[in-house]
Write a protein that binds this DNA or RNA. Structure first.
Lengths: 235, 235
DNA sequence: CGCACCCTTGAAATTACTCAAGTTCAGTGG
DNA sequence: CCACTGAACTTGAGTAATTTCAAGGGTGCG
């Protein structure tokens, strides 16, 4: 696993491109003075692991670019994806409340992230009400996402689940197009097999709910209107 | 819906039976002085609603006794249970971060709860680091429970899901016995139909994985060892 | 060119859903 | 005290959806 690390000073954080979405959004210059351990800037390859479930929680990560999956391993060794993180999200939030990670975080695409030592967060949380508010905001976001995951992606038949996933993935994206993870990951996210994921995508393609934008079958333009109907169970 | 309300003063909170599990665990006597709005003690009947998804968040609830389900309504009008709350858990935590409730909370059994005004929590959170720590703890608990829900109760076939639910419900209980909610709720929790829930329970009974302790088919003694094997997919 | 890796497809088996009766039990009122 | 009723649970039979197992394609890379 190749990882590029650049130590960054406060200057970099203060001028960071995604700061308005990040934990450090509201921090003042004085707050930045409290950072007494290095924050690293990471570039991670696809498939690399940010941390493992159960291991000691030493850092928390702000995702700057790319897609990260949080997974739990099932008794049979397969993965169940429990959440997806994109730019602005935090991986490893739980270490502000606990000693170890609650799930495994794996990059699904190339990822850029800031790696923040636990100590920095703990210190800032104590001494900066600004960070504090952002942390609460992140807890809420994570919990809501988990709840959405249960209500949307773990309910209904395969067609409904895939529709909801596609709608969700296309939502934040520029204009109704979606870059899907591998069929295996789609399955692990929806709680269906890889084959069913593949068949359902193929079926959506035949029905022109999805129009391929590449030859690999990952990048699509979606028909949001008709997908919404399917998501709501209308055939 | 019948609700009994008893206003309580700080004295009651300080001597509350479940305080060691509650939000107010670490509060000092001075902290209690900050409570400037009445905290009510509620007795709720089975099936009564604590709050509705989307409605303005005015209170948060500490469950003292009984079982509460958090639900989201599906496009077809049916419920999907996204979390179960028992003694010591908090319902409506999200209003410390947001203006409205993210899900609907409904009592599954008769429930006793403390109803705490949003203002009290917001004030205490600002002024008492003790409460603050407890809140973070509760966020973490809720998130972990949501993640467990996805990994355990929304993965695998009906037998595996039911096994995991039974094991989880029997865990905290005194001695390997379980009081199940209605079959409909079991289904809504596992993402299966009522009929499949019923059939699977019946099947477990025939296999003596469950031994009825009442004639209604709600209260059982569980065979934890064999259920674990099923939960892990070993037939 | 050939080897991986992922995706796709087929066919049979399994699992779960749907629809439609029954059954049981608790509570109600005659 | 007993029939009546409603709600929840159970069960069956047929159908639909999904999984499983197995094989075949396509793409990119060494």
């Amino acid at each position: 696993m190749h990882v590029k690390i650049h130590p960054v000073g406060e200057k970099d954080c203060e001028s960071c491109g995604i700061r308005e979405h990040s934990l450090f959004k509201d921090l003042t210059t004085e707050d930045f003075q409290l950072i007494d351990q290095p924050i690293h800037d990471l570039d991670l390859e696809s498939h690399s692991t940010l941390f493992d479930e159960g291991s000691a929680g030493t850092h928390l990560f702000t995702i700057r670019r790319g897609l990260v999956k949080l997974v739990r391993f099932q008794p049979d060794g397969s993965q169940r994806i429990i959440r997806l993180l994109t730019a602005g999200d935090i991986a490893g939030l739980e270490i502000t409340a606990s000693a170890s990670y609650d799930s495994t975080a794996i990059a699904v695409t190339p990822v850029s992230a800031c790696r923040i030592p636990q100590g920095v967060i703990i210190r800032l949380e104590k001494e900066s009400p600004r960070l504090h508010g952002q942390l609460v905001h992140k807890w809420h976001e994570a919990l809501k996402q988990a709840d959405d995951f249960i209500a949307d992606l773990a309910s209904g038949n395969a067609r409904q689940r895939l529709s909801r996933l596609l709608l969700r993935l296309s939502q934040h994206d520029s204009e109704r197009d979606v870059l899907l993870p591998s069929r295996e990951d789609v399955g692990a996210m929806l709680g269906i097999t890889t084959e069913t994921a593949s068949r359902t995508v193929a079926s959506f393609r035949r029905e022109q709910l999805l129009t391929p934008l590449d030859k690999l079958g990952r990048h699509f333009k979606v028909d949001a209107t008709r997908l919404s109907a399917i998501a709501d169970g209308l055939r």
